[in-house]
């Protein structure tokens, strides 16, 4: 291992971690709000043409928070993970489209 880290670097890292944790708590609050909105829309029977697209949009944004903040995909060194997650998401999307349009006719 390298030599002991200087104290100020240690302090800097801790500060960075605190900063990141703050972002994560904010994204958690956002996720909770999205969940409330989604459940609220259904429970109070918001009758609208847009309800299903809105529900899906809320889910996608919430998942993006989860991936980019909780799982750190926004950080450096996540190019390959992002490539493979997007690859998986692309195949997933094709699969879902197929199964919602090409199974019954």
């Amino acid at each position: 291992m390298s030599n002991a880290k200087p104290a100020h670097q240690h302090e800097y890292e801790r500060k960075q971690h605190r900063e990141e944790m703050k972002h994560q708590v904010i994204s958690f609050v956002m996720m909770i709000i999205f969940t409330f909105v989604a459940f609220g829309m259904v429970m109070f029977e918001v009758n609208s043409f847009f309800i299903i697209p809105t529900l899906i949009l809320l889910a996608v944004v919430q998942v993006a928070f989860q991936l980019y903040y909780f799982m750190h995909m926004k950080n450096k060194g996540h190019d390959m993970p992002a490539l493979m997650m997007y690859g998986g998401a692309a195949v997933a999307l094709l699969t879902i489209i197929t199964f919602t349009t090409l199974i019954w006719w």
């Binding site: 997650m85 699969t95 199964f99």
Partner: peptide
């Protein structure tokens, strides 16, 4: 770290297949 992320990419397709089946 990398291998597990790749595995999750595959899991995405696995669950998509299950979701697709459910939606059908």
């Amino acid at each position: 770290f990398l291998g597990f992320w790749f595995f999750l990419g595959g899991e995405t397709v696995l669950f998509a297949s299950l979701f697709g089946t459910y939606l059908a």
